[in-house]
């Protein structure tokens, strides 16, 4: 019983320790040497360009639903023209970065974990090490950098398409006055909301890439190990995004808007 309790405690702590060591190695690599441009460009293409369809659909339908729901509630108190402002602030600081990151975690994070996991079980990562190449420099850093660069851009896309879709639904389907709606949206959306959104997206990008690479690099042997690493990468990255979002919301809002 005692041994079971010990291992129940020890495994997560060991995992956290290994994750922290990986993050330190990534930082050391980033400070020590410039990543190769072709590796970075390829990852930017895979993570940024290839994720666009998923992100655009997510952004558009989130904007549309948010607009409809807000309108149905606001219409009761004759505040129809505030609908777009709510959509804009919600998408800009919360839903845009969170949903985009979750979609990228599902698409890219799982692929990263599967790719690195397969490389590990087929000894390709050991082969890299024998060829005097640090796996973090070659495999992890380009992925982390590309995700950190791509996620804020994808988030910006999702926010823009979400607001556009909300405008179309609000104006053409629900009959909200376009001029007042647009005016209120610009009036109540602060630049700080958008900045908070981009900061969150950058942090979530780092979370998705580091968690996925960690899971891939430490996966167990065999097909089951790779499958498990893939699932865990997605689940852990998603949970970390959702949990850290709360703390980031508290911290960044206090930072930019003060304590009142």
């Amino acid at each position: 019983m005692k041994a079971e309790t010990k291992s129940w405690l020890r495994h997560p702590l060991e995992g956290l320790g290994r994750y922290a060591l990986l993050c330190m190695e990534i930082l050391r690599s980033l400070l020590g040497q410039r990543p190769r441009l072709p590796d970075l460009v390829y990852q930017l293409y895979f993570i940024g360009v290839k994720s666009q369809s998923v992100v655009l659909v997510t952004g558009a339908f989130t904007g549309m639903v948010l607009c409809a729901q807000t309108f149905f509630q606001f219409h009761k108190v004759a505040m129809d023209t505030a609908t777009l402002a709510v959509v804009s602030v919600s998408l800009g600081s919360e839903l845009g970065p969170v949903l985009t990151s979750l979609m990228v975690a599902g698409r890219v994070g799982a692929a990263m974990a599967a790719e690195l996991g397969t490389m590990r079980v087929t000894e390709q990562i050991d082969a890299l090490r024998t060829l005097a190449t640090h796996p973090v420099d070659y495999l992890v850093v380009p992925r982390v950098l590309a995700t950190v660069i791509a996620l804020p851009l994808l988030t910006a896309e999702a926010i823009c398409i979400g607001i556009l879709a909300a405008y179309v639904v609000g104006v053409f389907l629900l009959g909200i006055d376009p001029a007042y709606s647009w005016h209120n949206m610009l009036r109540y959306t602060d630049w700080r909301d958008i900045l908070i959104g981009f900061m969150k997206a950058t942090i979530f990008g780092a979370v998705v890439a580091t968690v996925s690479c960690y899971k891939g690099m430490n996966c167990r042997q065999g097909a089951e190990g790779v499958g498990r690493a893939t699932t865990e990468a997605m689940v852990y990255a998603s949970i970390t995004i959702l949990m850290s979002n709360f703390f980031l919301t508290m911290f960044l809002n206090r930072l930019f808007y003060g304590l009142d």
């Binding site: 490389m119 087929t122 000894e123 390709q124 050991d126 082969a127 090490r129 024998t130 060829l131």
Partner: peptide, 23 residues
Amino acid sequence: NERALLQVRRKFGMLFQSAALFD
């Protein structure tokens, strides 16, 4: 540490059981 080992490994070549080619 791993980075110091990278320099030592330049003296080595290794053929893996599965060849471990980058696919």
